[in-house]
Amino acid sequence: MIELSVENINVNFGDKKILNGITESFEGGEMTAIIGKNGVGKTTFIKAIAGLTKHGGKSRLFDNGKLINDRNAIAYVPQLGALSTKLTVFEMVLLGLVNNLKWHVTNEQLQMVDDIIKKLNLTDISEQPFNTLSGGQKQLVSMAQSLISKPKVLLLDEPTSALDLRHQLIVMNLAQEYTKETGAVTIFVVHDLMLASRYGNSLLLINDGNVKAFDKAENVLKPEMLENVYGVQISVEHTKTGFLSAVPIKPL
């Protein structure tokens, strides 16, 4: 059983306080959606967990109660930016193993890349340059790059932004499958509240650097709470298919 525990995570950029001491615990095999307005520190929070931003407080990872001190156990998948690299899909995925690569790449390493490319249905584009791919394909390649090292914690920064509906589901299903299969802790930042409730076992609502709520979707997606945080009138309903839907009506 994997467990990620963060204690009093705080981050300042200069004089500006971004996170004021977040203390929570995340269980393996579960997905947590981080939601909140722009600029409240969602990305900063997962970057702090990944050790990519200077922060106070502790972030500790346990596997069956044993403390794990391996930086490679945590994978952070950045938001899809303007990346013009001409590395091929195969090479991008291979780079996920960068810390163990020598001049001669072993057959075992090549096989690992092969396996994950096949699993994610990227076989047909394995020799295409990354900069020629569609947004959805790029996101899948990014995920493959992170998943190849079998991380115990998977941190996804807005994995579905700029993707069409089908690719949103493909990417999120992949994360979900990985989480269930490996018992990893998965945390994803997302703006779309429907995706948050659809895939998050729980939702972490951040507001002004503090945790406003951390609970199951039906307890977080309350109209009063969302109106308060987002400043919009919002209607929350259960769909016939059993999902929770949050429809924004108008700004307040």
């Binding site: 994978a75 950045p78 690299t85 590395l87 780079l95 960068v98 690569l101």
Partner: peptide, 23 residues
């Protein structure tokens, strides 16, 4: 420089990504 080949290759995959890969 040949000692850094893979790290340099990783940088071409984007600075943030290279950092997140532990470089």
């Amino acid at each position: 420089l040949t000692k850094f080949t893979w790290k340099l290759t990783a940088i071409t995959a984007g600075e943030e990504r290279a950092k997140s890969l532990g470089i």
